[in-house]
Design a protein around this nucleic acid. Structure first.
Lengths: 239, 239
DNA sequence: GCGTGCGCGTGATTGACATCACACGACGAG
DNA sequence: CTCGTCGTGTGATGTCAATCACGCGCACGC
């Protein structure tokens, strides 16, 4: 029976078919079994707030399917999208481990399946399963690497067009699909959100995209964006 | 006998007096003993390059004393100082764990004592000592948190003066010393390096500091900088 | 001593981007 | 159908900071 969100729901980690592909979940049978006893599986519609920046850590969310945006906001209401989390990522791990407030907010941008683990349970789990702890360290390392890339991008590139170019290339690598007309990426973010990803304003994104279109670098058809001249994009990205 | 760098050198982790204060090193006697057998202790003068961005990970450095700057550079030679690492931090851990190239370069900015552990030895150590793995996860969480703060600072604050203000406040918290004339911080970085920390140019840093002096927010005496009006600085920082 | 390099201070100029402002189509709710 | 809302396109204007350019003091070597 299909779920209300057209998602295959897997309530049992032990039977999850994609487990082996996931840094964290790829564990021995006994560890997975232990995981199954403490987790709470949930389906979340698009727009669900998982946790909010500054809140005390309740626990971690394992993103089984779907995607979530991690954001941080200034007191003036300006928002920065730090990262788009993909399936397999563990959200809120660092705050949970340190016992410090969540440093970002997490919100699903697609219908998503998540496994929630309470803080104490998660810590106990890590302490009793060495491999889980190792995998968590790997997850954290990956997150740290991604954060470093973000820092590079924000701090080293002076021009906004460069940041946008890098974002598009990133999307090509991550979710791009090669077609005769170039690499296709499905843009499910608004210009406003794109602006929040690269730390600029909505208007600038609109203008830059028009510019890219005029220069025949990209081509927009509905929610699809074709990157027709990837070399030129790459050339714009010095960092 | 004093070392050539006026540092107390501790070649034996088991006898290290500050071990308990360090996230990573604060381990059981047996684990510390194991650590002692695989580490290489070294004294490094100011300006030593520990590892370089892009290089294959040889292993990790535990910063026992001194400080190091972590940098990343663009192909055009522009450099960003990502972080100033303080004693107790483990450098290169994420790259070593993932087996991916170092994502930053590390260079000592003071004479420093470091313990080096080869990659295989470090991974073995983590696998055989659960608590070490846990502490590494904590270290990585802290690094990730710090990176998030950096991202906030770079991405959310539009004006450069705000970034500089935040940096100064950061230094007040970290190494500040309260005096009758305000909080004193010792600036061992050049304007150029400060610029690289907040992603701007040397000239702008000079101008902003003059500006702050004119506004009686700070006062510079040699390599000491007095923050005389901290509330005003805090007011500039909205993020 | 004198050069040489380095860190700092400032001016002039320019370009990129934020900001404000408005218009237009799409789409859902009533 | 009509009205609001939302995402998008685009112009006008101002401002902040990058860039270039130069001078100045200070330390260090020979």
């Amino acid at each position: 029976m299909p779920s209300p969100y057209n998602l295959e729901v897997e309530y049992n980690c032990a039977e999850c078919r994609v487990r082996a592909e996931r840094t964290f979940c790829n564990m021995s049978a006994s560890a997975v079994q232990a995981l199954d006893t403490v987790k709470f599986t949930g389906l979340y519609p698009k727009g669900s707030l998982l946790f909010v920046e500054g809140e005390e850590p309740r626990g971690v969310f394992i993103l089984c399917s779907g995607r979530a945006k991690l954001t941080t906001s200034s007191t003036e209401g300006k928002t920065l999208i730090v990262k788009i989390a993909e399936p397999g990522e563990v959200l809120g791990a660092s705050a949970t481990i340190l016992g410090k407030p969540y440093e970002v907010s997490a919100e699903t941008i697609e219908p998503s399946q998540l496994n929630f683990i309470k803080r104490e349970d998660f810590l106990k789990f890590l302490n009793s399963h060495a491999e889980a702890c190792m995998h968590t360290a790997q997850q954290l390392s990956e997150k740290y690497h991604a954060a470093q890339r973000e820092i590079r991008s924000l701090g080293l590139s002076q021009t906004t067009s460069e940041k946008l170019a890098r974002l598009l290339l990133d999307w090509c690598d991550r979710t791009g699909e090669e077609t005769a007309r170039g690499t296709r990426i499905k843009v499910l973010l608004t210009h406003e959100e794109i602006a929040q990803m690269i730390g600029t304003t909505r208007e600038t994104v609109t203008r830059l995209l028009s510019d890219f279109k005029r220069k025949k670098i990209v081509d927009v058809k509905g929610s699809s964006l074709f990157v027709t001249n990837k070399p030129l994009l790459e050339h714009m990205v010095s960092v």
